[in-house]
Amino acid sequence: MSRGLWRDSWRRLRRNRPALLGAGLLLLMVLLALLTPWIAPFGYEQQNLVLGATPPSPSHWLGTDVLGRDMLTRILYGGRLSLAVGFIATALALIIGVTYGAVAGFIGGAVDALMMRLVDILYALPIMIFIILLMVLFGRSLLLLFLAIGAVEWMTMARIVRAQVQSLRQQEFVEAAVAMGLPPERIIARHIIPNTLGPVIIYATLTIPSVMLLEAFLSFLGLGVQPPQSSWGLLISQGVETMEEYPWLLIYPGIALATTLFALNFLGDGLRDALDPKSAKD
């Protein structure tokens, strides 16, 4: 009897094979990331300068880098960081962006104009200056990196959600909810936000990789992760430099990132379909 959006969505998701495969892969990635300190064959800063860069071998499955560090270990540790940045920063962007956009779009009028002009102003600020400023003021830390990236990415989300909400507000079912006497916060939570989820999820799955790449860029500039720590983005950008002599330094971190993105896309598509009752094939 008690069917509901969440329960039904879960039921539909379970029948979507590609989405399940994506979810499984992501879960595996997350598990590996969590368990890295126990399963990694070497320490991430453990060098073997005599060895230098060697191709994959039985003792180093994915080879070693120019300093003789085990690539498998580096990739595992890098994944910890990349996944954390991807998920935390995106979650932050989601929460701020959806709430902000929904409130602006629903209230409308002067409040909306004011809120969106603020977004325009923040948009106009160069991201780098903003992040450098944060780093200078608060010192360099991973937590701050998450916050800074999240604080940049939420603006696009807010714009997407606001546009959605504006068109939803005109819909008669929202008017019916107003006529029913429901307070605005309840209307936003029950009638508006569930109907914006489709585009939001798609955008979120696109945000995670772009956040990972932004992190690589910041780290490259020395504003993010510091060596000997590493992330996938950083490994890839270092791998590019030596791609001709030591291709495995680029290929394996590339595969790790690409697999994650594939998994995310499958899961994202599956979630969008699952959350839309009209896509039900029963």
Partner: peptide, 10 residues
């Protein structure tokens, strides 16, 4: 248009 597409009748 007047019914929320993501809510069941109940």
């Amino acid at each position: 248009a007047s019914l929320n597409p993501r809510m069941t009748v109940t």
